[in-house]
């Protein structure tokens, strides 16, 4: 048991986004958060890393309440890769990854901090870009730099907000490979919001489907069935087995589906929503 979320609630003003989220993510596993736009994936991640203060519920990390941790300690234990990032002024790859050592340190980077950066960028295969300006890099390279910044401090939890959305096929696979490798090797708890169901099915140990501020279903990727995809995304999809993993082929928007219901009345609870409490092991 590593990261435990119980009854997490969050609302933007009156509009409830997370309405009692429960799950447990284990160390060494990659848990994919799935769900349509606006289902609260990003909000959930931001609550977990305390960019947003939850309205209710509890988040514990190895038994410590995350809300009570001092900012630096929380930053050392939870790494976060936001969905987008724009810099005003240029920074090199090395400097950008080095930023990730900030919660570890003194007022200026130490030799140890620099060594950690060198090890990390070599592991990610971006060492040859060390002196390059991040804004000159391709989207895939840039995502690796940001992954590097999140892992250079060796956090035990890693939260990623759609790290592959803007990437081409090859870079998607590369970034996911790096991520899975890191999660396995360092026994890290990985939690990522992701739109690509097939990528999730291939790389995630478990997936959690978010809908209407709650977890609709959670479990191994085989929870991705035609029924769950229709219920959560409002899309008719065929689900095939391919090399022992789920392959979701979307066909068409479902009529009278959840997505339509959602757009007219967000607060209505979908019938048959399964309260997802994931406590295997």
């Amino acid at each position: 048991m590593t990261l435990e979320i119980r009854g997490l609630q969050f609302a933007y003003g009156e509009e409830s986004v997370l309405d009692g989220i429960d799950f447990t993510a284990e160390s060494g596993e990659l848990l994919g958060l799935l769900g349509p736009n606006g289902s609260g994936k990003s909000t959930l991640l931001q609550c977990c890393t305390r960019l947003l203060e939850p309205d209710g519920g509890e988040e514990t990390l190895e038994g410590d309440r995350v809300g009570d941790l001092p900012a630096d300690e929380r930053a050392r234990r939870i790494g976060y890769v936001p969905q987008t990032e724009s810099r005003t002024f240029p920074a090199s790859v090395f400097e950008t990854v080095l930023q990730g050592r900030r919660p570890h340190g003194g007022w200026t980077p130490s030799v140890r901090d620099r060594e950690a950066v060198e090890v990390t960028i070599e592991r990610l295969g971006i060492d040859e870009l060390a002196a390059r300006n991040v804004s000159e890099l391709s989207g895939g390279q840039r995502q690796k730099v940001r992954l590097g910044r999140a892992i250079v401090g060796d956090p035990s939890v890693l939260l990623l907000d759609e790290p592959t959305s803007a990437l081409d096929l090859k870079h998607r696979l590369e970034v996911m490979d790096l991520l899975v490798e890191h999660v396995r090797e360092r026994d890290v708890t990985g939690l990522l919001a992701i739109h690509d169901l097939n990528l999730a099915a291939r790389y995630c140990d478990r997936v959690a489907l978010l809908a209407d501020g709650q977890i609709h279903a959670v479990g191994a990727p085989d929870v991705l069935t035609s029924e769950t995809v229709r219920a959560v995304y409002g899309v008719e999809a065929s689900v095939r087995e391919h090399r022992d993993r789920q392959l979701v082929v979307p066909e068409q928007p479902a009529t009278g589906s959840r997505a339509d219901v959602q757009s007219t009345d967000r607060t209505e609870d979908a019938p048959g929503a399964v309260e997802g409490t994931a406590t295997d092991d």
């Binding site: 960019l51 630096d72 929380r74 050392r76 990032e85 002024f89 900030r102 340190g105 007022w107």
Partner: peptide
């Protein structure tokens, strides 16, 4: 100068800076 590193991190954006423990 004392807070130079924090300002470095700040330039990466509010979310990133906060997630790295910067107030």
């Amino acid at each position: 100068v004392r807070h130079g590193w924090d300002y470095d991190v700040l330039d990466a954006g509010t979310s990133t800076a906060r997630s790295l423990g910067v107030n």
